[in-house]
């Protein structure tokens, strides 16, 4: 498969009320092996997926939020979070997991993966993508 396409995974749902977030992450991890151009978007309640300090012990569900930290190792380092969704929920960048990646072209410098963007910028990112998975 010689072709490279721009894949965008759009995450819009809270992490534990339904299985969509967890199974979306499984697609991202498998998809990372295909050497495509991958971006992730978090908006609406999806922003809760990457909040810090998740604890699922009392609900007997798997806390898969730690897996997001591994995305950088899979070369998944373009993570867009919608500003309006954060604002509406009283969240800021400081409430989110410090997702980062190491840039091998820059002496393995550690760089932030998350970029907070406006709804209008998010629309452009969607428009410029070839494949949009919405979970």
């Amino acid at each position: 498969m010689p072709e490279t396409k721009k894949f965008l995974y759009v995450n819009r749902k809270a992490p534990y009320g339904t299985i969509y977030a967890q199974e979306a992450l499984e697609v991202v991890l498998i998809g990372a092996a295909f050497e495509q151009d991958v971006s992730l978007a978090f908006l609406d309640d999806g922003v809760y997926q990457i909040t810090k300090g998740q604890n699922t012990k009392e609900v007997s569900m798997k806390n898969f939020s730690l897996t997001y930290k591994a995305l950088g190792d899979y070369d998944v380092n373009k993570i867009y979070v919608e500003q309006e969704s954060l604002d509406a929920r009283g969240l800021t960048l400081d409430d989110l997991l410090p997702l980062a990646w190491e840039d091998e072209d820059d002496d393995w410098a550690k760089k932030d993966s998350i970029k907070v963007v406006s709804a209008a910028e998010m629309a452009k990112i969607m428009e410029q993508s070839d494949i949009v998975f919405s979970f």
Binding site: E3, A33, Q36, I131
Partner: peptide, 21 residues
Amino acid sequence: SGLGQLIEAGIQSDRLVTFGD
């Protein structure tokens, strides 16, 4: 089969259409 089949479908097709919420 595995999730790779979904990614491959995205790569090989002109359009991938999702039906769900």
